[in-house]
Design a protein around this nucleic acid. Structure first.
Lengths: 248, 248
DNA sequence: GCAAAAGTGTTAACTGTACACCCATGA
DNA sequence: TCATGGGTGTACAGTTAACACTTTTGC
C-alpha cells in the first residue's frame, strides 16, 4: 500500500466501458483479450478499461478509452454505476494478471462503468494499450469474464433495456441508412423477445422517428427493402412534449 | 498527497446518502448541517456521507451511514452512481470546511451516491459523527447544497421518479398502515404533478397492491378514511409475471 | 417458378383519461 | 348545519395485440 498518485495516475480508480455493437443479427460487446495464462480460457476476456488520471473526470476517461479503442468520439456514452466490491479483483486468475501489469497490484481499485452504443460496421477496433487484441462477442454467449466484468455487463445491459423503453437510443447502433427490418431486429436483440412486425412498424412510423429515403436495397434475393434515416427533429419535438413511450 | 490508507480508511472514496422521507405532505430529504462559516448560509447543508473503509463494500458503507443517522437497517437503498468531477470539492467554502475536518483535505475524493426511502415519522434522526445536527428539508425548496450534492440530489430524484414508474417502491416511504389518500399524495409529491383521484385509486386497487384493513381513521373532521397495508404477496406475484406497469 | 424477406389492415381487448356528486364525521 | 376530505362510475379515446396474404427480387 503506497502512494496512489504517481505519474498523475489515480491508482485506486478505473473506468470500464461496455461498448455495444449490432451486426444486424445479434447484440455484441467489444472485449479485449488479456495475455492468457493457459489456453481456451474464456475468462481472459475483459471489458476495456483503464485507470483514470488524477486530473481527469470519469466522462473524459471513458471517452478516452473509447477513442483509443475505436477512434470514435462524440458517441452515446452513459454511466452504469460504480463497482467496488472488496473481492472484485481477487480471483486467483485475475490476481496473477494484475501482478504482471500493475505496479501496485494490491491496491484496492474501484471502477466506474460506462456503456456506449456504436455502429459496429463503421469502424475497425484499434488495438491499444488496453488490449493486445479485440473481439466482438455476442452478449448472449458470454458466460464469464475477468474480474467482476460479467456483473458490469449485465448491469449495463439492463440499463440499456430500460432506457430503450423511454428513449429511442437504438439508432446509435445502426448506420445512417437502415431498413425497418434492421431496426426491428435490433429491438428484438436488445429486448430479448420477438416483436410483431406489423405492430413494430406501425408504431415507429406513427411516431415519425424515421424518414423514408428514396433508396432501396439492391442485390438481395427478395423484395428490396426501403432505407430510412433517423429523424432527429421529430425526436426532439417528442422530447419537448414530454413524450416518453418509446417502448415495445 | 500521501498515503491514502490510514486507519483503514480509504481517503479517496466516500459514500453519500440521499435519504428521502415523506411527511404526508411533501417529499423531504435528510440533510446535515456543517459548522457554518457565517450565518444564514444554506450551502452549509449537505448530504450525509462518509469516507469508506478499505475493507468495506459500497453497500455496507451506505448502510452504515444510514444506520448511524437513523438507527434503521434493512431499508430500501439503491445506488445512484459515482460522482467524481475534479472540481466537486473546490468551491472556496467547501475547501475551508474540508481543511477543518479532513487530515488530507487536498486528496481527490470521489463519491458513490445511494438513495434510500424511509418512513419519516417512524424514527428520530440521530446526530452522529457525520452530523452535528440534522434536518428534513422539502426537496422542492432546496436550491443549493455543499459540494456537488445538489447534482447528486437531482440525480437521485430522477432515479426515484423513473423507478416509481416500474416498481411500487413508494410504500417504503409510508407507515405500515396508510390511507389511499396518503398514497395518492405521495405519488403526486414524487412525480411532481396532480393525478386524478378516481383513476389513481382504481389502478391501485385493481393491481391488488394494497389490502383493505378493518380500521378507519378517527378524530378527523370528515368522513374517516380506511386504512390499507401493502400487499407483498401480490406484488411478488406481479413481479414473477414480469408485470412492470406501475406508473401513473 | 421458387425461395426469401418486404410490405400491408382490420378487429377486439385493454388501458388511460376526463369528469361530478353524495357520504361520514367533528366542530 | 357546515366545512372537510373520503369515496364512487361511466363513457370516450387511444393503445396494444393478434393475425395472413401479396409483392418484389435474384437465382
Amino acid at each position: 500500500m503506497g502512494e496512489i498518485y504517481v505519474n498523475n495516475l489515480n491508482k485506486g480508480i478505473s473506468v470500464d466501458c461496455v461498448i455495444f455493437g449490432f451486426d444486424l443479427e445479434r447484440l455484441n460487446v467489444l472485449l479485449i483479450q488479456r495475455e492468457p495464462l493457459n489456453q481456451d480460457d474464456l475468462s481472459d476476456l475483459a471489458l476495456p478499461g483503464d485507470l483514470i488520471y488524477n486530473d481527469e473526470n470519469f466522462d473524459s476517461a471513458s471517452n478516452r478509452v473509447l477513442k483509443e479503442l475505436t477512434g470514435l468520439e462524440n458517441i452515446f456514452l452513459e454511466q452504469v454505476g460504480a463497482f467496488g466490491d472488496i473481492n472484485r479483483l481477487s480471483k486467483p486468475h485475475d490476481r496473477a494478471w494484475l501482478q504482471s501489469v500493475r505496479d501496485q497490484p494490491n491496491v484496492r481499485v474501484i471502477t466506474v462503468a460506462y456503456y456506449s452504443l456504436v455502429n459496429q460496421n463503421s469502424f475497425h477496433p484499434i488495438p491499444s494499450k488496453f488490449a493486445k487484441s479485440i473481439t466482438w462477442k455476442p452478449v448472449n454467449e458470454i458466460e464469464s469474464l475477468a474480474f467482476d466484468h460479467l456483473d458490469i455487463l449485465q448491469a449495463a445491459l439492463q440499463k440499456l433495456k430500460n432506457k430503450l423503453q423511454t428513449q429511442p437510443i437504438g439508432f446509435n447502433l445502426l448506420p445512417e441508412k437502415f431498413t425497418l427490418s434492421e431496426l426491428h431486429k435490433l429491438y428484438e436483440a436488445i429486448i430479448g423477445k420477438e416483436l410483431d412486425k406489423r405492430n413494430f412498424r406501425r408504431k415507429m412510423l406513427k411516431l415519425e422517428l424515421v424518414t423514408k429515403l428514396n433508396e432501396k436495397q439492391s442485390g438481395v434475393a427478395h423484395k428490396p427493402s426501403n432505407y430510412y434515416s433517423f429523424n432527429l427533429e421529430n425526436y426532439e419535438k417528442l422530447q419537448a412534449e414530454g413524450y416518453n413511450n418509446f417502448g415495445f
